[in-house]
Design a protein around this nucleic acid. Structure first.
Lengths: 147, 147
DNA sequence: GGGTTAATCTTGAATGATTCCAGAAAAGGT
DNA sequence: ACCTTTTCTGGAATCATTCAAGATTAACCC
């Protein structure tokens, strides 16, 4: 019952070599969606013992290039990565702690929105980022009105 | 006929002191919307002779804090700044050269979109970034099929 | 099962944007 | 004019990310 496709097959399908660092990155992302490079590196090291930071960046770049993962860069935080599910979904970002949650796209496939005036650009994607406060931070703030 | 509000008045209204670097930044932004910190610094230096990079960042931070300018950070480029016009508009970014153009929001005031599932977040803004190729880059690419 | 080759990983240093710090300068209220 | 607070200067520090060169190793071939 592979809810997640077999990682090895995923790599092969993408035309990428199967290496331990790559498998570790896939697994790390499966466990922590929206992780940044550093978090992924730590997770990979927990599993493999040691992996260079550079390897993580290379792996993430290779994955992004073939569309295995999607790179998102919310303003104010380092780049985050997520296993791409093929759908074109969006994100809610907490202004306070930076956590990210997925939001399904209400309009189907990309581009899910049409620009009112495209200025002659040929648009292929509409990326939506919702900004707000997550439930946890809202609760905390309520308790500490002003430091 | 102040199409742009008087910069001095803008600063005073915002409760900020009126200084030469600040006026220079406002003017630079008026001339080049979507400029990054470095570009603004250069423009300010052209006008004032010399200004520290730090001063530019401080000014931009102060302006952003009071809502005089809006900071946008498209993935892959340094932060850009624009004079906030109060409306809640969006941006089209060229994947090739990075130029940014404004796109009016079709839905009025922020947040102009409603998340399909907000995960309990209290959302105050929906930021939309359209990605594509600008007319100039499209023309160039057409001429040079593949380098 | 070895050998070959190109892709991948390691180590270490470099870059670019941005921020931190401490002191000097200057804006505005009294 | 004077004083207080904000703002600006100069220089160093930080963080995420990338570059470079050589060592490994996965995958394909015989």
């Amino acid at each position: 019952m592979p809810t997640l496709e077999d990682p090895v097959a995923q790599l092969r399908d993408a035309g990428l070599r199967v290496t331990r660092p790559r498998l570790a990155v896939i697994e790390a992302l499966g466990r922590q969606p929206h992780a940044d490079a550093d978090t992924i590196a730590e997770a990979a090291r927990d599993e493999l013992g040691t992996v260079s930071t550079q390897a993580i960046y290379d792996v993430l770049k290779a994955f992004t290039a073939v569309g295995l993962v999607r790179r998102i860069e919310p303003a104010g935080s380092p780049a985050r990565f997520e296993l791409r599910v093929g759908d074109n979904h969006h994100h809610v970002v907490c202004r306070s702690c930076g956590v990210i949650a997925d939001v399904d796209c209400a309009h189907g496939s990309a581009p899910c929105l049409t620009a009112s005036n495209d200025h002659g650009f040929s648009i292929d994607e509409a990326e939506v980022t919702y900004w707000g406060i997550c439930p946890d931070c809202a609760a905390t703030t309520a308790l500490e009105p002003s430091i």
